[in-house]
């Protein structure tokens, strides 16, 4: 790995950290049963990026990221509002926000890039990602975001566990679900916004979903799941980047996703807890010995 250029090293660091952060917050999203929310919010971030650029008149990263975050927040609030105040269901609301915000973003993007001085390639990269051209500043941002995620996850670990598994009980026990929701959403948006630079809007969702689902196949323990998700996410980030670096000009984003999927496939087949091999062997044993009466306390899982 010594022959990697300076630039490639920055990219590697960034995608590693991004993968880890995405793995952790992605687990939270999974347990909240909102896996695709990240897809919706990634798309909803686009108008904010463009407006941020337009307002300042230059490609200033922090402004554009702030715009992206604001836009994503607005999107999530609208989804909530639609879902709670009308009979439109959550998946429909997500689809609406996803496509309408994105459409609006494209409208703005086209207008802005036709303005004098409009640097189209800079904004375009938010759509497909530009991991290959990340620089030191990006790594700083990624590190900040990753550390924030880690901090949030560790400091309130048992609160998260309670909040995610049984929000009603948590509320009864005095845990403010509004606060937890707000923190969760903030961190989610930050990770998304930091990440779409690297892998683009469409593939960000992959990084948030795939590693956390993969972790599920190895453990039932919440803490270990978080750690594994982070590891898988980081590995996917690194793996994908390495492939694209050595592959000369191959796009980074898609390979990160493919790397994540490879880890998922392995987990699916060989996972110690629910993998195919394990289930197959267990069923064989079940058929052989019949089963004892399950105790009253074991209720059927109602789906994950």
């Amino acid at each position: 790995m010594m022959d990697l250029s300076h630039n490639a090293q920055w990219v590697l660091m960034s995608t590693l950290l991004l993968g880890m952060a995405a793995g952790i917050i992605g687990s939270f999203a999974y347990w909240k049963r909102q896996s695709l929310m990240s897809d919706a919010l990634s798309h909803a971030a686009l108008p904010g990026v463009v407006i941020g650029y337009a307002v300042i008149g230059a490609k200033l990263l922090p402004v554009m990221l702030a715009g992206a975050a604001a836009s994503a927040f607005a999107g999530s609030l609208l989804i909530q509002w639609i879902r709670s105040s009308s009979r439109v269901k959550e998946d429909t609301a997500m689809g609406i926000i996803l496509s309408v915000f994105y459409g609006f973003g494209i409208m703005m993007l086209t207008i802005v890039t036709r303005m004098p001085g409009g640097n189209q390639s800079g904004l375009d990269s938010f759509i497909v990602g530009q991991a290959a051209s990340m620089v030191r500043q990006d790594v700083m941002i990624m590190t900040g975001v990753a550390l924030l995620v880690l901090l949030v996850a560790i400091v309130a670990f048992k609160e998260w566990k309670l909040f995610l598994f049984d929000p009603q009980f948590a509320r009864g026990a005095g845990l403010s679900s509004r606060l937890m929701d707000a923190v969760y959403l903030t961190v989610l948006v930050l990770v998304i916004v930091a990440g779409i630079q690297a892998v683009g809007v469409i593939l960000m969702a992959a990084l948030l979903i795939i590693p956390s689902v993969s972790a599920r196949y190895w453990t039932d323990h919440f803490g270990r799941m978080l750690i594994l998700s982070a590891l898988f996410g980081g590995a996917a980030g690194m793996g994908g980047t390495l492939i694209s670096v050595y592959g000369e000009g191959l796009p980074t984003g898609p390979f990160i996703v493919i790397a994540a999927f490879a880890l998922f496939a392995v987990s699916l087949v060989f996972g110690a807890k629910k993998g195919l091999v394990h289930t197959f062997l267990t069923q064989k044993a079940q058929k052989k010995h019949g089963m004892k009466l399950i105790p009253q306390q074991q209720l059927l899982e109602k789906g994950n």
Binding site: Y30, R33, Q34, S35, L36, D39, D91, I202, L203, A205, A206, L208, I209, I210, V213, R216, G253, P254, F255, V257, I258, F261, F264, L268, K274, L276, G303, N304
Partner: peptide
């Protein structure tokens, strides 16, 4: 196989798209 509906959709389409 026990993966949530939304997560299943997410895994499949992002990978195929990639």
């Amino acid at each position: 196989r026990g993966v949530q509906q939304e997560a299943s959709i997410g895994i499949v389409f992002t990978t195929l798209f990639a």
